[in-house]
Nucleic acid binder design. Structure first.
Lengths: 204, 204
DNA sequence: TATAACATACCAACTGGTCGGTATGGTGAT
DNA sequence: ATCACCATACCGACCAGTTGGTATGTTATA
């Protein structure tokens, strides 16, 4: 990929994130995205074969940028793996800021509508969610081995559950137009994880 | 409303649930819904002013039918409020059956795309989610008063969190095309509630 | 001058919504 | 009983606007 290509393509991808997160994938028109990017259809279809390809590229772009974003977050500095896990949760709380389209998830929005209609988009979303969950699961696994090695739950399951809670929090926040309810759910998630790590067998 | 009116309108509403849950609101064409109902556009626009009005009616219909469905579920028979709360969670697990469009939530699907574009739909979704959460909160409140009256969380918050977990579970299930991951999240939710009710102060 | 990057104009297909018309059934006067 | 009158329910052809996508032309750059 040339660098020159990059800039306009990037702008289209960034525009896609904004528009799709606000309106959903189906309602997001190619022209909306072009307008948001300050470009035209000629440019759009020069860089992407069709709307679906843009969606897949947007999902991958999202996975890439959020991946770097989380990878560079300060919670990784903690020496204790459990502190990193809880730090991740706290970091997720901290980035719930501003307007809804700013903190909600492109992936959850797209997969909700397109899981049955568009396999390529669904698969890209699956890769993104599970890729991120696998990263989180690493620290969960280390923390589990250190503190509750015999607990009857596994790290990846808990990581995926965490993603589910966050996704669900966004939905409730959208219904209420309030980030407060999203934060409340993430707080419950944090407490659950604290519980899990203070009970050797994972039982109440 | 005459009974004759009812039947076709009902068929359109039922068709709307099916089509919207499978394709999302934007991608659900009026003709798709008419086809699914075995009726024509003439009938559709006789019963509903426009597509938005159908969506709002569908949300209310959903709230009504699921409301009755949960109200008549056997978990209400338990004498202990905590058993009813856990019974509700188990019931939610039990109804995760069949294909994805059969157990996922119309409300979550619609509000995800339309929260910013269509206030009437968002408000209908908010009423539905919070109305259901308020019902669940009643038993949570009773159980809390009995077992952990001093805990530092409140019933409605936990009820809304439960809805968030369930909504999030659907999203992850859609990404993976698997109801197993949805069940896993609901299982985590159950364990969290068990934890909360075995710790007087709500602390780990 | 060759090629990538973009703009402009355009099209065919589709979409929500309209409209004229029909079928059916109820009501009240004769 | 029958007929005029009217309302509701429904049909399906149609329309105007929109949409994803294409064709063609222009500009920048190497």
């Amino acid at each position: 990929m040339s660098e020159a290509t990059h800039e306009s393509k990037q702008r289209l991808l960034d525009a896609a994130l904004t528009v799709i997160r606000a309106k959903g994938y189906s309602a997001a028109r190619v022209d909306d995205i072009c307008d948001a990017a300050g470009l035209t259809k000629g440019s759009f279809f020069h860089h992407f074969k069709n709307k679906e390809e843009l969606a897949v590229a947007a999902a991958e772009y999202w996975a890439c940028t959020t991946g770097k974003f989380f990878a560079s977050a300060p919670y990784h500095d903690a020496a204790d793996p459990l502190d990193r896990v809880l730090g991740y949760i706290d970091f997720r709380s901290a980035i719930i800021q501003g307007d809804l389209p700013d903190y909600t998830c492109l992936i959850g929005t797209m997969v909700q509508e397109q899981y049955d209609s568009n396999p390529a988009i669904r698969e890209a979303c699956e890769r993104c969610i599970y890729g991120h969950a696998a990263e989180v699961a690493k620290d969960i696994d280390l923390a589990k081995a250190r503190y509750v090695p015999d607990a009857d739950w596994n790290a990846m399951d808990l990581a995926v559950h965490s993603q589910a809670v966050i996704q669900g929090a966004f939905i409730v926040a959208k219904a209420r137009l309030s980030m407060g309810v999203a934060l409340a759910s993430v707080t419950h998630l944090r407490r659950y994880i604290e519980f899990l790590f203070s009970h050797p067998k994972g039982k109440a």
